[in-house]
Design a protein around this nucleic acid. Structure first.
Lengths: 140, 140
DNA sequence: TATTGTTATACTCTATAACTATA
DNA sequence: TATAGTTATAGAGTATAACAATA
């Protein structure tokens, strides 16, 4: 890779290409991408407030509120009033929500996991570090 | 990174996150992602019919029809009746539509280049290799 | 006053079903 | 009959503005 500009173009194209390919592999049609993303955050990081979820997904609070409402109505999450700060409500996964995450994550990652297995250990280490860096780029 | 499945999840999320951030860099904020994607198809592949655009973006014909209507009203595309098969209409970019695509591509690269300059030479090398690997994954 | 969450409102994207025009 | 496009209708995700409750 000769220049930073060239790296930029290559990384942009590779990111869009992989993103598009991964989106095409969407397995569970019952839940939307936005809903599954929220369940994923709660699954990996535990209970979160509405504001925290909105920031994590970089959407507005009213937008996240609507998504959480849907998830609450479908029984995948519950709101619990915060004991200390009563303005807050902690949003947690129900057993059903946890099951959905566990059952769907493997489906969503099946395509990618299969391809990652074909790579060397060293290449996977590169991608692991790259995932961290890409996450950092996006939040800067 | 303990398992390949975990790497898969992290890489997928990082890819979606960076993809989303890059998509936010556009020449005209009034254009949605779906609209810009259609302009991109027309820019790269030339004139297309409604059905072809719907298939390219994997959405229904009515959904694409609505998106094309918006683009037509904003002056980014034009419909031209097909001379041979009068059921069809060929959708083409206007000069304004072409400008938006070109300006958006350079704006995205500019954003990414700025962030890449803040990284170490080693981290950029990781991303360069990762871009190659990601490209390979997507085409496999 | 500031923060957290919600409601009100509006726009886009998405879909399926049904319709029109043309082949 | 079949195909290309459109209209009708409805649900989800997005936003901003304004509000209520609490700190």
């Amino acid at each position: 890779m000769a220049t930073i500009t060239e790296l930029s173009t290559e990384l942009r194209m590779a990111t869009f290409r992989l993103s598009r390919r991964l989106r095409a592999e969407k397995a569970d049609q019952a839940l939307s991408d936005a809903q599954l993303a929220v369940l994923g955050v709660l699954y990996r990081r535990g209970a979160r407030t509405l504001t925290e979820l909105a920031e994590a997904e970089r959407v507005s609070a009213p937008s996240m509120n609507r998504t959480v409402n849907c998830l609450e109505e479908s029984g995948h999450v519950v709101r619990t009033a915060d004991e200390v700060d009563r303005r807050k409500s902690n949003i947690t996964l129900t057993d059903a929500g946890r099951d959905v995450v566990q059952q769907t994550l493997s489906k969503r990652d099946a395509w990618l996991t299969t391809r990652l297995r074909e790579l060397s250990k060293e290449d996977r280490a590169v991608l692991a570090r790259a995932a961290e860096l890409m996450g950092g780029l996006a939040t800067r």
